[in-house]
């Protein structure tokens, strides 16, 4: 009877861990799963394996997963150009000084332990600002390059320093917006 209940609970917990949308909860369910599994080992008369399972799987592995989740954060950069349809991708990404800027921002993100994700889109700026799913928006109109960053994000300050120091020759402007989407312009 105990055995059947334990086995059923194991299957249930495994299904929950797979189906949960929130990764953190999935990790916790996996920890409970391992603890029950170690109890089952004990029930089957393998206390040695049970100790190893309890210490490794439900202790250290849970900790490692949680650390990994904490470190893995995605930083979404949106590159928008309203004349996008007339220009092909290679013009933006390769060779040009602007491509270098994008690469440098990418490098900056990696050095801050963020996963950079660059999206190129021809959509309008106001639409992008309203969506709020981007951490940084870079807009290109002709020669003018404008960077929009959320005011609350503290990476924006360092990024601004980087751009000012390295790209003085570019016609580049840095603009912050706050939660009500009011823009704070700064001369740079």
């Amino acid at each position: 009877m105990t055995e059947a209940i334990l086995l059923l609970l194991l299957v249930l917990l495994a299904i929950i861990a797979v189906e949960t949308q929130i990764l953190r909860m999935a990790v916790i369910f996996l920890g409970i799963f391992s603890l029950l599994l170690s109890f089952l080992y004990l029930y089957y008369g393998a206390p040695d394996v049970a100790i190893a399972e309890a210490v490794m799987a439900s202790g250290l592995v849970t900790l490692l997963y949680l650390t990994a989740l904490k470190r893995h954060r995605v930083y979404t950069i949106c590159f928008t150009n309203e004349m996008f349809r007339e220009v092909d991708d290679r013009y933006i990404i390769e060779g040009t000084r602007r491509g270098q800027l994008l690469r440098e921002i990418e490098q900056f993100c990696i050095s801050k332990e963020l996963e950079p994700q660059i999206i190129c889109t021809p959509e309008d700026l106001s639409l992008l600002l309203e969506k709020r799913s981007y951490d940084l928006i870079i807009r290109q109109e002709g020669d003018q390059l404008t960077v929009y960053g959320n005011q609350d994000n503290y990476f924006v300050d360092e990024l601004e320093m980087l751009i000012i120091m390295r790209y003085q020759d570019l016609n580049c402007k840095f603009i912050r917006y706050d939660e009500e989407l009011t823009l704070h312009e700064e001369a740079s």
């Binding site: 100790i51 210490v55 900790l63």
Partner: peptide, 28 residues
């Protein structure tokens, strides 16, 4: 767990994993 590993459940590996929790707890 380490010292009684030769005649009770446990042993070097399990006891070592428990001891590793010392430094990891400090990190936490």
């Amino acid at each position: 767990v380490i010292l009684n590993g030769h005649n009770t459940p446990g042993g070097g590996f399990q006891g070592g994993a428990i001891l590793a929790v010392l430094f990891i707890g400090r990190y936490l």
